[in-house]
């Protein structure tokens, strides 16, 4: 079963990479962008076959390793 996770920076955390991407887009002519925030995306293929159990495990992974909860939020996306 594959579960996906998106990690994003919390609202108050400075994202200098996002800022530079924004500036570069602006310079390329994409001048209607308000803000860019960069995040991370994971695909986790697990042996677990129960959807709820798999999501619970992935949530634990997010809390313990994949995200740093001081600065990041995680979002688990339903498996396919």
């Amino acid at each position: 079963m594959k579960i996906s996770v998106i990690i994003t920076l919390k609202k108050d955390v400075l994202d200098p990479q996002g800022k530079i991407i924004h500036q570069t887009l602006d310079g390329m002519g994409f001048d209607d962008v308000n803000e860019v925030r960069q995040g991370k995306y994971f695909e986790i293929d697990t042996k677990e076959t129960d959807n709820d159990k798999a999501k619970a495990k992935v949530e634990e992974m997010c809390k313990k390793l994949l995200a740093n909860l001081v600065i990041e939020n995680y979002k688990i996306i339903d498996s396919k």
């Binding site: 955390v13 200098p16 990479q17 740093n68």
Partner: peptide, 16 residues
């Protein structure tokens, strides 16, 4: 900081 022994985090330097 990743162990939580000291608080906070270390982000990418401001000017990259």
């Amino acid at each position: 900081v990743e162990t939580g022994l000291v608080p906070g985090v270390l982000l990418r330097n401001k000017y990259l």
